[in-house]
């Protein structure tokens, strides 16, 4: 059994669940607890990454740089991670100040077929001596050959690992095995997997990824994340321990950290509710869920119809504006009936 690098996205992806309203006290409390548990990497920032605070995807309560500063103060063992999507974040406005504020690990993400937009950001972070990973989002939308090609581009830019994200929670275990093994065969650098729980398969898919050769696995406390949430990190640690994969994370302490997360960060526990199940089936980014629910109420249309229509249009992350357009269209059709 190989060693796994556990990447904690509670303080980044989790933010989607509460409309990006994490406070400094919440960041401090969870960062300290995860650090104590020996979590290797703690990622912070707006749910869509640095610089993404906007009307389009939601404005954050705490500016990214303050989040980084607060987390930095509360971490001694863990590395501090950040996430950026070119098109939202820029080097000058976001990456440079984050690196100066003490980020150790930089993940640069793009939609799964658009890796070349990450070149400058990956190279910049490597030049600054950071640990740098490429991320292919919405990876259920491309076949394994395309994913391998795109991941190879990221490797050529200097990425030290590539993570496949199941941003819509649309994967079944076979998809995970097939796509992760394709990347493991194609790359000389580590491969990672980031699951969403829309179809209730986050833990199972993470296990499938590890068995297929992935060495980086993402999780968040209690699955804190958009809609149905992510993979509960405390479950991952338990399951991997039972399977014999070493993670270096202490079981009791990560269980404690997850209790702290539930108490301090979360309003409701994530669960695959109907809209999340539909989002997974439609292959639409889980981060859309809060926006879809709000807009569906406002225009009096069925949120499930919105998700299926968005899926039909093959929308990608960052296209949240289409929710309003689709809702207006659906409500007009309803009036005509």
């Amino acid at each position: 059994m190989h060693k796994l690098l556990i990447h904690d996205v509670t303080l980044r992806d989790g933010s989607h669940a509460i409309g990006h309203q994490l406070s400094a006290a919440q960041v401090a409390a969870y960062a300290a607890a995860a650090d104590k548990a020996g979590v290797p990497i703690i990622e912070v920032g707006h749910g869509n990454g640095l610089g993404a605070s906007s009307l389009q995807v939601g404005e954050s309560l705490l500016p990214d740089m303050e989040m980084i500063t607060v987390a930095r103060k509360n971490i001694s063992r863990s590395k501090l991670g950040i996430f950026i999507i070119p098109g939202f974040a820029t080097i000058n406005k976001d990456l440079k100040p984050a690196v100066e504020a003490g980020a150790d690990v930089v993940r640069v993400a793009s939609h799964c077929t658009e890796a070349d937009i990450t070149e400058r950001h990956i190279s910049y972070a490597r030049e600054k001596g950071k640990d740098v990973y490429g991320v292919l989002m919405m990876s259920h939308m491309a076949p394994k050959e395309t994913l391998a090609e795109e991941a190879l581009k990221m490797e050529s830019y200097g990425a030290q690992g590539v993570i496949l994200m199941d941003s819509a929670g649309a994967y079944l275990q076979n998809d995970v095995s097939e796509k992760v093994s394709a990347l493991v065969r194609a790359l000389t650098i580590p491969v990672g997997f980031h699951a969403h729980n829309n179809l209730g398969l986050a833990v199972a898919n993470s296990v499938a990824a590890a068995e297929a050769g992935a060495t980086i696995i993402d999780g968040s406390a209690r699955g804190f994340g958009a809609g149905a949430g992510n993979t509960p990190i405390e479950l991952l640690i338990g399951v991997f321990e039972k399977m014999g994969f070493a993670t270096g994370v202490e079981l009791y302490k990560i269980l404690d950290a997850s209790d702290i997360a539930e108490k301090e960060l979360m309003k409701v526990l994530p669960f695959p509710k109907p809209t999340s199940i539909v989002s997974g089936l439609a292959g639409v980014f889980s981060g859309f869920s809060k926006h879809v629910e709000r807009v569906a109420l406002e225009y009096k249309v069925d949120p499930r119809d919105i998700f299926f229509e968005l899926g039909r249009r093959r929308v990608v992350g960052g296209q949240e504006d289409l929710i309003v357009e689709v809702a207006i269209e659906l409500s007009r059709k309803k009036e005509l009936k």
Binding site: S54, L55, Q56, G87, S110, I117, V315, G317, Q319
Partner: peptide
């Protein structure tokens, strides 16, 4: 002000779409 650019690979190709929001 804030500008965001999103690339969408969908086939058939989508037309350029621009959304303006103002407070």
């Amino acid at each position: 002000t804030k500008a965001i650019l999103v690339l969408n690979p969908a086939q058939p190709c989508i037309n350029m779409q621009t959304t303006v929001r103002a407070t």
